[in-house]
């Protein structure tokens, strides 16, 4: 996949560019939510990590054509969404799952997905019906598609919204915390669905779950204070903490970040004290180090 980000060298390209952002900036009053972000993405799954308020949701809303950037240029599927005609064309090939989506409680999942399909201009009723059933089955709601949405659990409602995003096999899928409210089995099912989509298109998802990123994404972008502060593969993110993570039974005042682990020992990231054996780094360690060092 093609993936480059601000202040990061471009890796070699093996597929076409599906999304390109150059100097994207978005402010709300005095708050700069997205600050001069450059991106180039091709096919595959890209995970967007970052603390709350980092600007992930704003960036995803820009990539989903919901928000227009104040500055910078954006190309989605080779088109400029600043033009209304191109934006409509992009939207025909786009799937979007917002953070905490709300649905019509009186609709069934099948009706909800069908309605979204209509608004995506899929006007062949028979095709739409087949496709709606297929995406609902793909997200594990085949047996609940005729129940009222208000009777479904939060996780199931999240999957209805995901199915709505998947309808029409979009080339660009933008998902804001898609795993929220899903149990482990549902998360695994989600990975399969997204992996399938990533074969033909670009999936950009935000999450707080580093394990999710490690399991699912070919590329990770770490965002903080509106900027992409790190870009690379999950293994490279874990590698950032190589030789900079260790465990002990006591507080380490020199550590950048310390936390108590399940077995009762303390895990630290920072400059390894001399004579200490480093621990095997995880994506979590790399992420913590990157966000600490970027401040």
């Amino acid at each position: 996949m093609t993936t480059t980000a601000h202040s990061t060298p471009s890796p070699s390209t093996d597929s076409g560019t599906m999304l390109a952002a150059d100097g994207i900036t978005k402010a709300f009053g005095s708050l700069v939510a997205v600050d001069d972000v450059d991106l180039t993405l091709g096919r595959g799954i890209v995970g967007l990590l970052g603390p709350n308020g980092a600007g992930k949701t704003t960036l995803l809303r820009i990539l989903a054509t919901v928000l227009a950037p104040d500055r910078g240029t954006l190309s989605l599927l080779g088109m400029d969404p600043a033009s209304p005609a191109a934006r409509t064309e992009v939207r025909r090939r786009l799937g979007y799952l917002p953070q905490s989506p709300r649905l019509y409680g009186g609709f069934t999942p099948l009706e909800m997905v069908d309605y979204v399909a209509i608004l995506k201009e899929h006007t062949d009723r028979a095709w739409r019906r087949r496709e709606a059933v297929a995406v609902l089955e793909a997200v594990g709601l085949g047996d609940r598609m005729h129940k009222r949405i208000r009777t479904l659990s939060g996780g199931m409602q999240q999957r209805v919204a995901l199915a709505a995003a998947l309808i029409g096999s979009p080339d660009l899928l933008v998902l804001d915390e898609p795993a929220t409210g899903l149990d482990p089995e549902q998360r695994i099912a989600l990975r399969s669905v997204l992996a399938e989509t990533a074969h033909r298109g670009c999936v950009v998802l935000s999450t707080h779950n580093t394990a999710e990123v490690a399991a699912l994404c070919q590329h990770v972008l770490v965002m903080d204070a509106g900027r992409i502060c790190w870009s690379g593969t999950p293994a490279e993110l874990a590698g950032v903490a190589e030789g900079r993570v260790w465990e002990s039974d006591v507080e380490e005042p020199t550590a950048l970040r310390s936390w108590l682990t399940g077995p009762g020992t303390r895990r630290h990231v920072g400059t390894l004290p001399s004579g200490t054996t480093p621990a095997v780094p995880t994506v979590d360690d790399g992420y913590l180090l990157v966000t600490r060092l970027s401040r």
């Binding site: 989903a64 054509t65 939207r91 917002p98 201009e121």
Partner: peptide, 13 residues
Amino acid sequence: DPAAALLAPVPVS
């Protein structure tokens, strides 16, 4: 529209 966020990027404006 309760579902406005989900429907925001559909082609029907």
